[in-house]
Design a protein around this nucleic acid. Structure first.
Length: 261
DNA sequence: ATGGTAGTAAAACTA
Protein backbone atom coordinates (compact mmCIF):
# COMPACT_ATOMS: atom_id res chain seq x y z
CA UNK A 1 0.00 0.00 0.00
CA UNK A 2 1.24 3.49 -0.83
CA UNK A 3 0.05 7.07 -0.71
CA UNK A 4 -1.22 8.37 -4.04
CA UNK A 5 -1.43 12.16 -4.36
CA UNK A 6 -3.70 13.63 -7.03
CA UNK A 7 -4.07 17.32 -7.89
CA UNK A 8 -6.27 19.43 -10.14
CA UNK A 9 -5.37 22.93 -11.30
CA UNK A 10 -6.94 25.31 -13.83
CA UNK A 11 -3.70 26.85 -15.10
CA UNK A 12 -5.28 29.51 -17.36
CA UNK A 13 -2.73 28.93 -20.16
CA UNK A 14 0.01 26.36 -19.54
CA UNK A 15 2.57 28.36 -21.51
CA UNK A 16 1.98 31.40 -19.29
CA UNK A 17 2.07 29.28 -16.13
CA UNK A 18 5.13 27.03 -16.59
CA UNK A 19 7.10 29.18 -14.12
CA UNK A 20 4.54 28.15 -11.48
CA UNK A 21 3.54 24.62 -12.55
CA UNK A 22 7.01 23.09 -12.99
CA UNK A 23 8.49 24.22 -9.61
CA UNK A 24 5.19 23.32 -7.94
CA UNK A 25 5.35 19.79 -9.36
CA UNK A 26 8.95 19.41 -8.17
CA UNK A 27 8.01 20.56 -4.69
CA UNK A 28 4.67 18.77 -4.23
CA UNK A 29 5.52 15.65 -6.25
CA UNK A 30 1.92 14.60 -6.92
CA UNK A 31 1.46 11.29 -8.71
CA UNK A 32 -0.98 12.95 -11.08
CA UNK A 33 -1.74 16.58 -11.94
CA UNK A 34 -4.91 17.30 -13.92
CA UNK A 35 -4.81 20.64 -15.71
CA UNK A 36 -7.55 22.66 -17.37
CA UNK A 37 -7.59 25.68 -19.67
CA UNK A 38 -4.17 24.89 -21.09
CA UNK A 39 -5.13 27.16 -24.01
CA UNK A 40 -2.74 25.56 -26.46
CA UNK A 41 -3.07 23.29 -29.47
CA UNK A 42 -1.40 19.87 -29.27
CA UNK A 43 1.49 20.69 -31.59
CA UNK A 44 2.51 23.59 -29.33
CA UNK A 45 2.09 21.96 -25.91
CA UNK A 46 5.31 22.46 -23.86
CA UNK A 47 5.96 18.81 -23.00
CA UNK A 48 9.76 18.99 -22.60
CA UNK A 49 9.68 20.86 -19.25
CA UNK A 50 7.49 18.05 -17.84
CA UNK A 51 9.73 15.30 -19.21
CA UNK A 52 12.82 16.94 -17.73
CA UNK A 53 11.40 16.64 -14.21
CA UNK A 54 10.27 13.05 -14.64
CA UNK A 55 6.62 13.43 -15.66
CA UNK A 56 4.74 11.96 -18.57
CA UNK A 57 2.24 14.47 -19.93
CA UNK A 58 -0.90 13.81 -21.97
CA UNK A 59 -2.86 16.66 -23.45
CA UNK A 60 -5.83 17.49 -25.61
CA UNK A 61 -6.21 21.01 -26.92
CA UNK A 62 -7.62 22.53 -30.07
CA UNK A 63 -6.66 25.24 -32.56
CA UNK A 64 -9.09 27.67 -30.93
CA UNK A 65 -6.55 28.74 -28.30
CA UNK A 66 -9.02 28.25 -25.46
CA UNK A 67 -10.15 25.34 -23.29
CA UNK A 68 -7.66 22.46 -23.35
CA UNK A 69 -6.96 19.75 -20.75
CA UNK A 70 -3.79 17.90 -19.78
CA UNK A 71 -2.60 15.25 -17.35
CA UNK A 72 0.92 15.04 -15.97
CA UNK A 73 1.77 11.79 -14.19
CA UNK A 74 4.82 10.12 -12.71
CA UNK A 75 3.82 6.77 -14.24
CA UNK A 76 2.13 6.62 -17.63
CA UNK A 77 -1.44 5.26 -17.69
CA UNK A 78 -2.29 1.90 -19.26
CA UNK A 79 -4.26 3.85 -21.87
CA UNK A 80 -6.26 7.03 -22.26
CA UNK A 81 -8.95 8.66 -24.37
CA UNK A 82 -10.03 12.24 -25.01
CA UNK A 83 -13.48 13.73 -25.57
CA UNK A 84 -16.99 12.59 -24.72
CA UNK A 85 -18.50 9.63 -26.58
CA UNK A 86 -21.57 11.71 -27.60
CA UNK A 87 -21.55 14.58 -30.10
CA UNK A 88 -19.98 17.07 -30.00
CA UNK A 89 -17.01 15.28 -28.51
CA UNK A 90 -15.35 18.39 -27.01
CA UNK A 91 -11.97 16.71 -27.01
CA UNK A 92 -10.46 19.88 -25.54
CA UNK A 93 -12.61 19.50 -22.39
CA UNK A 94 -12.14 15.94 -21.16
CA UNK A 95 -9.36 13.39 -20.85
CA UNK A 96 -9.85 9.92 -19.35
CA UNK A 97 -6.87 7.85 -18.17
CA UNK A 98 -6.86 4.28 -16.89
CA UNK A 99 -4.27 3.38 -14.26
CA UNK A 100 -3.73 0.01 -12.56
CA UNK A 101 -5.39 1.21 -9.36
CA UNK A 102 -7.91 3.80 -10.58
CA UNK A 103 -9.76 5.35 -13.48
CA UNK A 104 -9.39 9.11 -13.78
CA UNK A 105 -11.61 11.59 -15.65
CA UNK A 106 -10.31 15.17 -15.94
CA UNK A 107 -12.88 17.69 -17.17
CA UNK A 108 -13.18 21.36 -18.00
CA UNK A 109 -16.94 21.85 -17.84
CA UNK A 110 -18.41 24.64 -20.05
CA UNK A 111 -18.84 27.85 -18.09
CA UNK A 112 -22.19 28.86 -19.60
CA UNK A 113 -21.78 32.65 -20.07
CA UNK A 114 -25.23 33.67 -18.74
CA UNK A 115 -28.36 31.80 -17.68
CA UNK A 116 -30.37 33.14 -20.65
CA UNK A 117 -27.74 32.17 -23.24
CA UNK A 118 -27.61 29.01 -25.40
CA UNK A 119 -24.21 28.24 -23.90
CA UNK A 120 -25.88 27.76 -20.51
CA UNK A 121 -28.23 25.16 -21.98
CA UNK A 122 -25.15 23.57 -23.50
CA UNK A 123 -23.57 23.45 -20.04
CA UNK A 124 -26.64 21.74 -18.54
CA UNK A 125 -26.65 19.22 -21.41
CA UNK A 126 -22.93 18.68 -20.92
CA UNK A 127 -23.48 17.55 -17.33
CA UNK A 128 -26.16 15.14 -18.61
CA UNK A 129 -23.84 13.76 -21.29
CA UNK A 130 -21.14 13.34 -18.66
CA UNK A 131 -23.67 11.53 -16.45
CA UNK A 132 -24.43 9.14 -19.31
CA UNK A 133 -20.72 8.61 -19.94
CA UNK A 134 -20.09 7.67 -16.30
CA UNK A 135 -23.13 5.41 -16.19
CA UNK A 136 -22.34 3.60 -19.41
CA UNK A 137 -18.54 3.38 -19.33
CA UNK A 138 -17.65 2.98 -15.64
CA UNK A 139 -18.70 1.07 -12.57
CA UNK A 140 -19.14 2.83 -9.25
CA UNK A 141 -17.71 -0.33 -7.69
CA UNK A 142 -14.35 0.53 -9.28
CA UNK A 143 -11.90 3.16 -8.09
CA UNK A 144 -13.21 6.08 -10.14
CA UNK A 145 -12.07 9.69 -9.77
CA UNK A 146 -13.67 12.71 -11.48
CA UNK A 147 -11.93 16.04 -11.10
CA UNK A 148 -11.31 19.36 -12.75
CA UNK A 149 -12.73 22.83 -13.14
CA UNK A 150 -16.41 21.85 -12.96
CA UNK A 151 -17.60 25.49 -13.10
CA UNK A 152 -20.11 24.86 -10.31
CA UNK A 153 -20.19 25.93 -6.67
CA UNK A 154 -22.50 23.25 -5.23
CA UNK A 155 -23.81 25.04 -2.14
CA UNK A 156 -24.05 28.41 -0.39
CA UNK A 157 -21.02 27.53 1.71
CA UNK A 158 -18.94 27.38 -1.50
CA UNK A 159 -19.10 31.10 -2.42
CA UNK A 160 -18.43 34.41 -0.68
CA UNK A 161 -21.82 36.11 -1.10
CA UNK A 162 -24.41 33.49 -2.07
CA UNK A 163 -27.33 35.95 -2.12
CA UNK A 164 -25.74 37.98 -4.93
CA UNK A 165 -24.86 34.94 -7.07
CA UNK A 166 -28.19 33.15 -7.49
CA UNK A 167 -28.34 33.96 -11.22
CA UNK A 168 -24.69 33.27 -11.95
CA UNK A 169 -24.06 30.34 -14.31
CA UNK A 170 -21.73 28.72 -11.75
CA UNK A 171 -24.24 29.00 -8.90
CA UNK A 172 -27.69 28.97 -10.52
CA UNK A 173 -30.12 26.32 -9.23
CA UNK A 174 -30.46 24.54 -12.60
CA UNK A 175 -26.68 24.14 -12.89
CA UNK A 176 -26.45 22.91 -9.30
CA UNK A 177 -29.23 20.43 -10.07
CA UNK A 178 -27.46 19.23 -13.24
CA UNK A 179 -24.29 18.73 -11.20
CA UNK A 180 -26.15 16.87 -8.45
CA UNK A 181 -27.65 14.61 -11.10
CA UNK A 182 -24.10 13.48 -11.96
CA UNK A 183 -22.96 13.10 -8.35
CA UNK A 184 -26.14 11.11 -7.58
CA UNK A 185 -24.44 8.21 -9.34
CA UNK A 186 -22.55 7.87 -6.06
CA UNK A 187 -19.75 10.44 -6.21
CA UNK A 188 -18.26 11.70 -2.95
CA UNK A 189 -16.87 15.25 -2.74
CA UNK A 190 -13.46 14.47 -1.27
CA UNK A 191 -12.75 18.02 -0.11
CA UNK A 192 -16.08 18.18 1.76
CA UNK A 193 -15.50 14.72 3.24
CA UNK A 194 -12.43 16.07 5.01
CA UNK A 195 -13.75 19.61 5.64
CA UNK A 196 -17.48 19.34 6.30
CA UNK A 197 -19.17 22.73 6.73
CA UNK A 198 -15.83 24.55 6.57
CA UNK A 199 -16.40 28.04 5.13
CA UNK A 200 -14.13 30.36 3.14
CA UNK A 201 -12.45 27.56 1.19
CA UNK A 202 -12.18 28.68 -2.43
CA UNK A 203 -10.28 27.54 -5.52
CA UNK A 204 -11.11 30.45 -7.87
CA UNK A 205 -10.53 34.16 -7.37
CA UNK A 206 -11.72 36.50 -10.13
CA UNK A 207 -8.91 38.68 -11.51
CA UNK A 208 -11.42 41.54 -11.71
CA UNK A 209 -12.10 41.59 -7.97
CA UNK A 210 -9.45 43.77 -6.35
CA UNK A 211 -7.37 41.92 -3.74
CA UNK A 212 -9.66 38.91 -4.02
CA UNK A 213 -7.13 36.57 -2.41
CA UNK A 214 -6.33 38.67 0.64
CA UNK A 215 -10.05 39.49 1.08
CA UNK A 216 -10.83 35.81 0.37
CA UNK A 217 -13.58 36.62 -2.12
CA UNK A 218 -13.82 33.49 -4.24
CA UNK A 219 -15.58 30.38 -5.40
CA UNK A 220 -15.10 26.64 -4.81
CA UNK A 221 -15.63 25.44 -8.37
CA UNK A 222 -12.70 23.01 -8.73
CA UNK A 223 -13.43 19.56 -7.36
CA UNK A 224 -12.18 16.04 -6.78
CA UNK A 225 -14.99 13.50 -6.55
CA UNK A 226 -14.69 9.73 -6.31
CA UNK A 227 -16.65 6.52 -6.16
CA UNK A 228 -17.55 5.46 -2.59
CA UNK A 229 -14.86 2.80 -2.27
CA UNK A 230 -12.11 5.17 -3.37
CA UNK A 231 -13.49 7.82 -1.01
CA UNK A 232 -13.06 5.43 1.89
CA UNK A 233 -9.37 5.28 1.03
CA UNK A 234 -8.88 9.06 1.01
CA UNK A 235 -6.69 10.39 3.79
CA UNK A 236 -6.64 14.18 3.12
CA UNK A 237 -7.82 16.94 0.80
CA UNK A 238 -6.67 20.55 0.70
CA UNK A 239 -6.53 23.70 -1.41
CA UNK A 240 -3.02 25.06 -1.93
CA UNK A 241 -3.24 28.87 -2.07
CA UNK A 242 0.49 29.38 -2.42
CA UNK A 243 0.64 29.37 -6.25
CA UNK A 244 -1.96 32.15 -6.23
CA UNK A 245 0.62 34.37 -4.49
CA UNK A 246 3.27 33.91 -7.19
CA UNK A 247 4.06 36.34 -9.99
CA UNK A 248 1.42 36.18 -12.74
CA UNK A 249 -0.77 33.62 -10.98
CA UNK A 250 -3.64 31.69 -12.49
CA UNK A 251 -7.05 32.85 -11.30
CA UNK A 252 -7.46 29.34 -9.86
CA UNK A 253 -5.39 27.52 -7.25
CA UNK A 254 -4.60 23.80 -7.00
CA UNK A 255 -6.76 21.30 -5.11
CA UNK A 256 -5.09 18.12 -3.85
CA UNK A 257 -6.23 14.81 -2.42
CA UNK A 258 -4.29 11.89 -0.98
CA UNK A 259 -5.36 8.25 -1.03
CA UNK A 260 -4.08 5.02 0.51
CA UNK A 261 -3.90 2.65 -2.44
C1' DA B 1 -25.21 49.42 -10.32
C1' DT B 2 -21.52 48.79 -13.41
C1' DG B 3 -16.95 47.34 -14.37
C1' DG B 4 -13.13 45.63 -12.92
C1' DT B 5 -8.24 41.73 -15.40
C1' DA B 6 -5.97 38.34 -18.03
C1' DG B 7 -5.59 35.01 -21.59
C1' DT B 8 -5.93 33.90 -26.76
C1' DA B 9 -4.50 36.31 -30.41
C1' DA B 10 -3.99 40.33 -33.61
C1' DA B 11 -10.00 42.47 -33.15
C1' DA B 12 -12.90 40.66 -30.30
C1' DC B 13 -13.97 36.98 -27.68
C1' DT B 14 -13.88 34.08 -23.42
C1' DA B 15 -13.80 33.53 -18.54
Amino acid sequence: MSIVKIATFNVNSIRSRLHIVIPWLQQEQPDMLCMQETKVDNDQFPKDPFHKIGYTVLFSGSPKGRNGVALACREAPLDYTVGLPSEPHDEDRIITAHFPKLHLVNTYVPQGFSIDHPRYLYKLEWFQRLHDYFRESFSMDDNLLWCGDLNIAPEDIDVSNPKTKKNHVCFHEAAQEAFRNVTSLGFVDIFRKHHPREENQYSFFDYRVADALSRNIGWRVDHILTSPHLAEQSRAAYIDRHPRSQQKPSDHTPLLAEFNL
